[in-house]
Design a protein around this nucleic acid. Structure first.
Length: 598
RNA sequence: GGGGUAGUAGCUCAGUUGGUUAGAGCGCCGGCCUGUCACGCCGGAGGCCGCGAGUUCGAGUCUCGUCUAUCCCGCCA
């Protein structure tokens, strides 16, 4: 008995026809003489009416139907009486009166409710252990469908723009400059290892040298770093690269892609081009390279005010080349001791000496341990610049510029969370604040390494007019790098690449000060390739999981990945990773040592 | 590597100041019921209170450790 329709399909126009439906028993309502089964498949639910008394064979089992069992039914589409119509169901004006049915598979009682509302509350580790049941919930199947649609829109869009979809190797070699990698031992090359690709970066640049001109891939990437709500050990990037272009071409291409995605999936019409924000401004005003601009509370500079202040903690930092900034967490004066301690601990863990604050109580009274150090003029200026009103709390941060910004930026985000919890800050879920962050420094000085390291990666081209500074003052060189940010989340980033072999060699050798043999070993083939007519090129990589997460309103990208891993990188369903046999290890020339934690 | 939160019935949770036999709703099992769609009614079963120590006459409750999940910092060229 094959299905003729799916469970979301039947309408009043089908009344009178004989149909077969197949699916899972969503629920059973047994009234003794009549029995209703909601039959569910991936497209929807249809009510099937059983009359146990009409058939002895059916009546035997019909009172013991187990939810989630798989059945196929044959019956007739019938109109529902007026008061029996279910408006909440797409098929709610009709029902199928059963003629016969076949039990295809009896289900055990599931370990948790297969139900959108109740299922949402179930512990995630249990749902991940039984992910095949969790995915049955309509909401999760809908997410998978949306992800499919997003991928298809992206493919169609890039195809229309002349891109070729090309697969690059996942088994690559180790490039220890970047993220920690998953290593794969080579059986036929004893003692040597592949690394799973963190990104197709080097291969896609080689495709440009090869003359592909426009490449893209929905690329699986692997990073052995600790998890977060928006990070998984394996994830998917929309990876693309183009030849003979500049930054503006990338902006326009990506703006078109985002516009189409948001339009076709959410029916939202977005304005392009997106705003471009300079990295120093992002950090200075929001304390982040991916600011959430959907609420205020910007960072305010107070250097001029405190440079000659009585308050030594502030003026000494300024005299030492540092920076004093503040934010006004509007309406958060009733912060609890516990919350304040949490903010302070967080600031300290990020390198702050402490977290100074002033509470503005009702009636214009200010409370703060540091208030006694401030002159009346200083208080007045603070009040004016930070627009302090009763019920506000102002946080101060004195540290070296970058640090003071980023710590206060984190305090800003946490304060926003506390305000949301109190119902005093609401962010419109329909706001989509896309923008580019540009003008990043090409490299930053790494105190631990004692040398410059690439801010993003060593293939990023310097801004043309800054190139001469590479020798004199590398930290002043801006890179032709760009990040796409949406609602405080980094969707992805890219750059115009270096395509001149000499410049690339110079960056490796003189600026990053990598040893010659390391350069030769890791990047020799790239520099060499650039000697054979490498076109100017650039590209970008975007997190597909994050994009789908935003399109579906998911709290974590785990929700938009069919089989995600836990924070420790495990798949609870298949129990991976797991041990291997001695024989396998021998074949791979691997010995393991279990180190006792103590 | 560090900080926070959580772990009690299959699921979601309650459990007071440490005190008798650890509760509820849903689910499950049995029975009744011909128009439900969170069906209804009657009855029943179901507990290593994450695990291990400790304090105590007595621990779900207090202390320490540990495991798991999660959020964050570090990390993520």
């Amino acid at each position: 008995m094959k299905r003729t329709h799916h469970c979301g399909e039947l309408r009043v126009t089908d009344i009178g026809s004989s149909v077969n439906l197949a699916g899972w028993i969503d629920s059973v309502r047994d009234h003794g003489g009549v029995l209703f089964v909601d039959l569910r498949d991936r497209e929807g639910i249809t009510q099937v009416v059983f009359n146990p008394n009409t058939n002895d064979a059916i009546s035997q089992i019909v009172h013991h139907l187990k939810p989630e069992s798989v059945i196929v039914v044959a019956g007739e589409v019938t109109a529902r009486e007026n008061d029996a119509v279910n408006r909440r169901l797409a098929t709610g004006e009709v029902e199928v009166h059963l003629n016969s049915f076949e039990m295809l598979n009896v289900s055990e009682t599931p370990p948790f409710p297969i139900d959108d509302e109740k299922g949402d509350k179930v512990n995630e580790d249990l749902r991940l252990t039984y992910r095949y049941l969790d995915l049955r919930r309509p909401k999760n199947l809908e997410t998978l469908k949306k992800r499919h649609r997003a991928s298809k829109i992206i493919r169609d869009y890039l195809d229309g723009e002349g891109f070729l979809e090309i697969e690059t190797p996942i088994l690559f070699k180790s490039t220890p400059e970047g993220a920690r990698e998953y290593l794969v031992p080579s059986r036929v090359n004893p003692g040597e290892f592949y690394a799973l690709a963190q990104s197709p970066q080097q291969y896609k640049q080689m495709l440009m040298v090869a003359g592909v001109e426009r490449y893209f891939q929905l690329a699986r990437c692997f990073r052995d770093e600790d998890g977060r709500a928006d990070r998984q050990p394996e994830f998917t990037q929309i990876d693309l690269e183009m030849s003979f272009i500049d930054r503006e071409d990338i902006y326009a291409l990506l703006e078109g892609m985002m516009k189409r995605l948001w339009n076709e999936i959410l029916d939202v019409d977005m304005t392009t081009p997106f705003v471009r924000m300079h990295y120093p401004d992002a950090l200075n005003n929001f304390g982040s390279d991916r600011p959430d601009r959907r609420f205020g509370m910007q960072l305010i500079d107070l250097n001029d005010l405190f440079k000659d202040s009585e308050f030594k903690v502030f003026n000494s930092v300024i005299k030492g080349g540092g920076n004093v900034k503040a934010i006004n967490a509007k309406g958060l004066a009733d912060i609890t001791e516990g919350e304040l301690r949490y903010l302070t601990d967080m600031a300290v863990s990020m390198g702050a000496k402490g977290l100074a604050f002033i509470r503005a109580r009702q009636g214009g009274e200010w409370k703060s341990p540091i208030l006694k150090f401030f002159s009346d003029e200083e208080k007045a200026t603070i009040q004016e610049r930070l627009e302090v009103e009763d019920g506000d709390i102002v946080f101060f941060m004195a540290a070296e510029w970058e640090r003071s910004c980023s710590i206060l930026g984190k305090v800003r985000l946490e304060s926003a969370e506390l305000l949301k919890k109190r119902g005093r800050l609401e962010i419109d879920p329909n706001v989509w604040d896309f923008f580019w962050v540009i003008e990043f420094p090409l490299m930053v000085y790494d105190d631990e390494e004692g040398r410059f390291v690439s801010a993003h990666h060593p293939f990023t081209a310097p801004v043309v007019e800054d190139a001469h500074l590479l020798d004199e003052d590398p930290k002043k060189v801006r890179g032709q790098h760009y990040d796409l940010v949406l609602n405080g989340m980094e969707l992805g980033g890219g750059s115009i690449r270096i395509h001149q072999p000499d410049l690339q060699q110079k960056v490796f050798e003189e600026v990053l000060q990598l040893p010659k043999d390391v350069i030769e070993n890791r990047f020799g083939y790239m520099v060499n390739a650039f000697r054979y007519g490498a076109p100017p090129h650039g590209g970008i990589a975007l997190g597909l999981d994050r994009i789908v997460g935003l399109l579906t309103g998911s709290a974590s990208i785990r929700d938009v990945i069919a089989f995600p891993k836990t924070q420790k990188g495990q798949c609870l369903m298949s129990q991976s990773p797991g041990p291997v046999t001695e024989r396998q290890l021998r074949d791979l020339h691997i010995q393991t040592i279990v180190v006792d934690k103590k």
